[in-house]
């Protein structure tokens, strides 16, 4: 089962969005039937349901937070972790499943130390499992953000993650150089 999920600290934007949400709740009645539309609204604004949002919704509807959580976890559409900068979607549709998609998923999970549905603490990566993405000929398929990676294999998983890391390091170097350059100018 899920390890205990660490609570992500809200970014300034998210905190502001949460305040907005608190205001927006007034537009919904206090009937329990409004729960799912409210949760959808929250997820639309925040991309996920942080614990504080669940508490807010629960107190608006006069429900216990665990009831709200119970309903939200029933549906696949709700997330409880913020999406990572790289959203890794591993396809487990029929073709991908047959071609070992679960091995790919496990590889990502092991490499990143998180489970599907979770996000790395630095918010860089998140893993989701998806059903068919519509390019079964390329199975097993992984979609990272908008890029489709076909014929994924465990070695490719490593390559992909290494690629992201190299890219990040290069960017950091450039940023540093840029900052240094600026400071020299002055």
């Amino acid at each position: 089962m899920h390890e205990q999920s660490k609570e992500f600290e809200l970014t300034a934007e998210e905190a502001a969005a949460l305040d907005e949400i608190a205001g927006a709740l007034g537009r919904f009645g206090q009937e329990r039937g409004n729960l799912i539309p409210i949760l959808q609204m929250v997820q639309e604004r925040l991309s996920y349901l942080p614990p504080r949002a669940i508490e807010l919704v629960a107190s608006h509807l006069g429900m216990a937070p665990c009831e709200v959580y119970g309903v939200a976890t029933f549906y696949n559409q709700f997330r409880f972790h913020p999406p990572g900068r790289y959203r890794i979607k591993v396809c487990l549709g029929t073709a991908c499943h047959v071609k070992g998609g679960d091995i790919i998923l496990e590889n990502f999970e092991r490499k990143l130390g998180i489970r599907d549905g979770e996000t790395t603490p630095d918010r860089e990566f998140s893993i989701e499992r998806v059903a068919c993405v519509g390019c079964c000929a390329l199975a097993p398929v992984t979609v990272i953000n908008e890029t489709v990676h076909g014929h994924t294999a465990p070695s490719k998983v490593e390559g992909l993650l290494l690629g992201f890391q190299i890219e990040r390091e290069r960017k950091e170097r450039e940023d540093k150089k840029h900052a240094d350059g600026e400071s020299q100018d002055h």
């Binding site: 205990q4 669940i54 216990a64 937070p65 665990c66 009831e67 029933f74």
Partner: peptide, 28 residues
Amino acid sequence: VVGAIDYNRRGFLSRPETVHERPLEEST
């Protein structure tokens, strides 16, 4: 009338759980 636990998730994974699957002492 405390509301500390409820079913979470669904199917085989469903269990009576606290919010965010926290230990009982961190719940209500």
